[in-house]
Write a protein that binds this DNA or RNA. Structure first.
Lengths: 197, 197
DNA sequence: TGTTCCATGTAATAAGTTACATGATTTA
DNA sequence: TAAATCATGTAACTTATTACATGGAACA
């Protein structure tokens, strides 16, 4: 159960599926994503399990809203989840996989462009994270704020730190790729011609 | 389709599902994982799709082996995949999510232990990556080696770099957590007593 | 009048995990 | 003789993605 726990966590205040999606897109997206088509069924399931309850509320604009709130069981489940020991977990990083197998492209000059394109996207994400951080409540002395905001800021820093490291990795790659292709050109002057074919 | 492409990439030389699992566990695990129960069905599917073919080969020890090799269509599919533009992709990081919601534990002193436990696991992974790197062919001047080995090393560096950044993040967190709990203790001397309850 | 926002969903598919089944050979 | 290694799989389940459906209200 995974989005399940994210939703329980977000329901510290009562919200509709629509609200939850907005919060995921704005505050949570750097470590979790979800679509409506997953959120709505999960909320139903959580209600069936007794972890949340819902009431229908008329909306100012648009159709009725189904507003969910935590039950005691939901609060207990959330607490148990955050308290069980952290695990690094598994991850799959497609762009690293592609790079690993890039020689199969049979285009030796592809790596440079590949990393350049990646780097561009990373910088965009990093800037987005930094913007969130810049607007963070508390400014410099953010560590006297409440526990919740403090933990959220630590989580945000995880995103920033990793993304900075990824950009740094791109730069390291580009340096090596350029140096290497220069030195390969020196060894085999026919390289330039091959590259153009 | 995802493990599909990983398997196509690994099949640059013919291998059985068992061999593939071993290679995933040793060389690929820092960006992709897979169990036998996923590998075998995917191989069958790839064969049905015409991307690989298999022949049964008697084994020295144990039962017959089904050895897969790429077809022309498989090689084409692999090339198309590595050549289509890289994307950052989405990721879900459970430990960051837990930290984000950690205030729901109602145990204000939990964060420190949480990060300490995480850090331990990260250092183990980082050491494993560094060991792979230490034994890398080419030593210092690894950039004159063949394209395949070069790209694989860049991929490995992605793992090392990110894991180093994560450990650094843990240290940053621990510093802030300790400083903060000291300053909170000063402001409210009853904190120590509360902590023990 | 067309686009965005509000609001909730279903259906089909893909991808991955966990648990289980089978059985020979080699090593301790 | 017990455990590890070799070797291939199936079944059930969980999790997430993509595509589609509906319809009102606000805005430009």
């Amino acid at each position: 159960m995974s989005l399940d726990h994210i939703l329980l966590g977000l329901l510290r205040s009562p919200q509709s599926g629509y609200d939850l999606k907005r919060e995921i897109d704005t505050r949570v997206r750097y470590f979790w994503q979800a679509e409506f088509s997953q959120i709505y069924p999960v909320l139903r399931r959580l209600e069936k399990g007794g972890f949340v309850r819902s009431r229908t509320v008329a909306s100012d604009k648009g159709p009725d809203r189904r507003v969910y709130s935590l039950t005691a069981a939901g609060r207990r489940e959330l607490r148990d989840w955050v308290l069980d020991p952290p695990e690094l977990g598994s991850f799959r990083v497609e762009f690293v996989a592609k790079l690993y197998f890039l020689a199969a492209s049979e285009q030796p000059a592809r790596a440079e462009q590949f990393i350049e394109e990646l780097r561009e996207q990373m910088v965009i994400r990093l800037d987005a994270l930094r913007e969130i951080e810049a607007e963070w409540p508390g400014g410099d002395g953010h560590d006297t704020i409440d526990d919740e905001t403090f933990h959220q800021h630590l989580a945000l820093r995880a995103g920033v730190t990793v993304m900075e490291a990824r950009v740094g990795w791109c730069d390291e790659c580009l340096g090596r790729i350029r140096k290497r292709s220069a030195s390969l050109r020196k060894r085999s002057p026919s390289f330039e011609k091959e590259k153009q074919q």
